[in-house]
């Protein structure tokens, strides 16, 4: 059983992606992924309202396999988008919030982002934060009850690839989880994270269709941790988090 916490759909010229739901399902089938949490690229880099509408339509036939994030590139559009976010969670079954740090233009712990973080915390849905460990710490201080997934566990250019720093953030704040997807396959990375924060705080992600999910799964399965720990990372932890909305 595998639940992928980090998948993209839609179009982006920047990362040279144009992918539909059907293609993601085919890729997931090939790699053995059962469910995917999906975020829309148009919402992430161009138009929040259009992108979130697109993903709702695109995955309508695949709701048993695809769980949508509501995606925002900035909190600065304010109340209108906040209300849209609320509607997508309550009326359309969106089960996460995706946010993206664009330094130095805007950081995700921008004050305008806080109402969205508070709303996600109120809904008890996870926030996938493409950001630095420091930004996750800042959000955790401001909204301690939020459920934060530090995308790529620091292995992205914005966070300078510093997974040690992200692990330290997760160690300091129990609401911070670490998403394993990235181009980095450093020796001992997963083992170190498990030793420092426990397997219960680590989530498998692929970054499909940018990165190869087969390799990202192997990052977990080929690490020197127990099968029980691998199962938690591959699906147990995110499945547990997703149930919090149901019991909220």
């Amino acid at each position: 059983m595998i639940t992928d916490c980090h998948v993209h759909i839609g179009k982006s010229t920047w990362i040279q992606i144009d992918v539909a739901a059907k293609e993601l399902i085919a890729a997931a089938d090939k790699s053995g992924i059962d469910r995917m949490m999906v975020t829309d690229l148009t919402a992430l880099i161009y138009d929040i309202e259009e992108g979130n509408r697109l993903i709702r339509e695109a995955i309508a036939d695949y709701r048993d396999r695809m769980i949508p994030y509501y995606t925002i590139v900035t909190g600065r559009h304010g109340k209108k988008v906040l209300e849209d976010f609320e509607r997508y969670v309550t009326d359309h079954g969106f089960r996460g919030l995706k946010i993206y740090s664009v330094p130095p233009l805007q950081l995700i712990d921008d004050p305008y982002m806080i109402p969205f973080i508070e709303k996600a915390a109120e809904f008890q849905i996870p926030i996938l934060a493409h950001s630095t460990g420091e930004e996750c710490e800042s959000l955790s201080r401001q909204v301690p009850e939020c459920i934060l997934i530090n995308a790529h566990m620091g292995c992205c250019p914005q966070a300078h690839g510093d997974w040690h720093r992200s692990v330290a953030a997760a160690k300091a704040y129990p609401n911070i989880y670490l998403d394993t997807t990235s181009s980095s396959f450093d020796n001992d990375m997963i083992e170190f994270a498990v030793a420092e924060v426990g397997a219960e705080r680590i989530l498998y992600g692929s970054d499909l269709p940018l990165l190869d999910p087969t390799l990202q799964i192997a990052k977990v399965t080929e690490s020197e941790i127990t099968q029980e720990q691998k199962d938690l990372i591959l699906h147990g932890n995110i499945d547990r988090i997703l149930k919090r909305r149901d019991s909220a």
Binding site: F185, D186, A218, K219
Partner: peptide, 11 residues
């Protein structure tokens, strides 16, 4: 040994 060596052959 700097990267997980299982990934190279697998890809």
């Amino acid at each position: 040994p700097l990267q997980n060596p299982a990934i190279g052959p697998l890809k």
